[in-house]
């Protein structure tokens, strides 16, 4: 069986969090320059540090779509266990939302690379690209909400004696949906806690996102181990 690869996929979720968060910190995006800043200040942010930090950080983040999708696939495999012979709507929705969520993430990160690629260009252009990055990075939130909601509903639908995920994880996913929601509203604010550098626009959704990915990775790893042990036992009995 392919348990090893499943484990690798689940681990790639952890790797993603451990790579992306320090890089965001390094690029000075915790918190990012305020959306209320003028173009000169935004341009200065990309010119202030050696531009290779943005180039390198952005370039690594841009490559994170594959680990993200692999992680989503590992979850979908578990949702498939929950569905058993039912139509695979949970696993399909989850992987499709995951593909969109992490593609969008790549497009957002590409904006940072573009800003740093020619930091000497007109500040208005840098500001536009920076706006694009943050509005896409935080504002495109329905794919992630879709993932969390799908996982939550799938866990609630699991009526087997040995559920794949614990039921509290279902509530955790539903709660995450609520936390992610305000990030989708950042286009309406340039100041305050709901803007893209504010508490409800950036900090809470992003930190909960990281925690949620880690928790789901660990739960998937545990589920895989259980399934592997059960399969080993069956094959021993068959011998």
């Amino acid at each position: 069986m392919n348990y090893r690869f499943q484990q690798l996929c689940a681990l790639s979720g952890i790797a993603l969090v451990l790579l992306v968060f320090p890089l965001l910190l390094l690029m000075g995006f915790f918190p990012p320059p305020s959306p209320a800043e003028g173009s000169a200040a935004i341009a200065a942010h990309y010119q202030s540090k050696s531009s290779w930090i943005f180039l390198l950080g952005g370039a690594v983040c841009v490559q994170m779509s594959a680990p993200g999708v692999m992680w989503s696939a590992a979850i979908s495999v578990q949702l498939r266990h929950i569905e058993q012979n039912e139509p695979p709507i949970f696993s399909l929705t989850n992987i499709a939302c995951g593909v969109v969520a992490f593609s969008v993430f790549t497009f957002a990160c590409a904006g940072w690379v573009i800003c740093a690629f020619r930091p000497e260009r007109a500040p208005e252009i840098i500001q536009t690209m920076n706006d694009w990055s943050f509005i896409v990075f935080l504002g495109t939130v329905t794919p992630l909400m879709g993932q969390a909601l799908t996982i939550g509903l799938a866990i609630f639908s699991d009526r087997s004696d040995e559920p794949v995920f614990p039921r509290w994880a279902g509530f955790l996913n539903c709660w995450a949906v609520l936390i992610f929601l305000p990030a989708g509203l950042i286009p309406f604010f340039k100041t305050g806690p709901f803007a893209w550098h504010g508490f409800f626009g950036l900090w809470l959704p992003v930190l909960v996102f990281g925690g949620w990915m880690l928790v789901m990775s660990v739960l998937v790893l545990r589920a895989i181990r259980k399934q592997k042990m059960a399969a080993d036992l069956t094959s021993q009995l068959a011998d």
Partner: peptide
């Protein structure tokens, strides 16, 4: 009720 719902409620109350 069930434990999970209390956890959810607590999380929401914290938010």
């Amino acid at each position: 009720g069930e434990e999970g719902v209390w956890g959810f409620v607590f999380g929401d109350m914290v938010m």
